[in-house]
């Protein structure tokens, strides 16, 4: 069973996932951030693979990626960092990057490294379903890797059903038709969308992301899904308060 799915199954509700950019704020902070997040009791962690042209990300994550790349981060270093904590880290990890990074690194080599780091879930926001069906599904399946699909308020029911069928980890439910970035509140329109998806009775677990930034948006999202992902708000906090600020940030999300 997929590692993330297993965790979600055991825990059930109120899962908190944090996205962070590897190699940020400093090149060798990757392991420390994961360790702190684990100690703070985060349910699973998305490890961002910094990309020069992250089309699905907002300015906060884009800026952190630029800084990480300037710090000298690359896929080999990230994989080395993840390998070094493979035994000590107990928090499930997901890697998130862009398809061109996988293509250039070598699809098989990428999969081998991911698996070697004890990871079985990837998010590639610019991997479209048709390419997944024609090529990547077989490749990922052969490595036991599951691809996370995103759905949005504009994704058709037919497509959501198909995604549900392909999903072994979780479905990433985009909170609004917007790129990532802290918003601060959840609208009635978004709630109508959450309820519509909830009523579909999908087999897959649902995690809500995009625009989740504080205790109030996190708990609201958890009413409709198995949990939520926080990215930009965490990166901002990391930038302002450093690694020592991680514990109180996570605490603030969990409890008002």
């Amino acid at each position: 069973m997929n590692t993330i799915a297993k965790h979600l199954e055991q825990k059930g509700r109120n899962n908190l996932s944090i996205y962070f950019t590897s190699g940020f704020p400093e090149l060798n902070d990757t392991q420390k951030v994961i360790e702190e997040l684990g100690e703070a009791g985060v349910d699973f962690i998305e490890v961002g693979l910094p990309y020069s042209d992250p089309l699905a990300d907002g300015p906060t994550i884009q800026d952190s990626s630029t800084i990480a790349l300037r710090n000298g981060i690359n896929l080999d270093i990230v994989f080395d960092q993840l390998m070094s904590i493979k035994d000590s880290n107990k928090t499930p990890l997901v890697v998130m990057g862009y398809l061109n990074q996988v293509l250039k690194y070598g699809e098989k080599r990428f999969c081998e490294k991911v698996v070697a780091c004890g990871i079985d879930t990837v998010i590639l926001p610019d991997l479209p379903m048709v390419e997944y069906e024609n090529h990547y599904k077989a490749l990922f399946d052969s490595y036991g890797i599951n691809n996370v699909f995103l759905i949005t308020p504009n994704t058709s029911e037919e497509r959501i059903r198909k995604i549900d069928e392909y999903t072994q980890s979780f479905i990433y439910m985009v909170a609004s038709s917007a790129i990532t970035g802290a918003k601060g509140e959840i609208s009635d329109q978004q709630i109508a969308y959450f309820e519509r998806i909830k009523a579909m009775n999908l087999k897959s677990k649902l995690i809500i992301g995009f625009g989740i930034s504080n205790h109030s948006t996190f708990s609201k999202a958890c009413e409709y899904a198995n949990g939520a992902i926080i990215g930009s708000a965490f990166i901002k906090n990391l930038q302002n308060n450093g690694i020592q600020g991680i514990a109180s940030f996570v605490k603030g999300i969990r409890n008002a």
Binding site: Y51, S52, D53, L55, L69, N74, L75, D76, Y98, L99, N100, Q101, V102, L103, K104, Y105, D126
Partner: peptide, 21 residues
């Protein structure tokens, strides 16, 4: 360039060894 993805299209792309544009 080498084969790569930019702006939604697979094409020939100027990139480094890690696929950064």
């Amino acid at each position: 360039g080498e084969v790569g993805i930019i702006h939604g299209s697979k094409t020939i792309l100027m990139q480094d060894e890690y696929g950064q544009i």
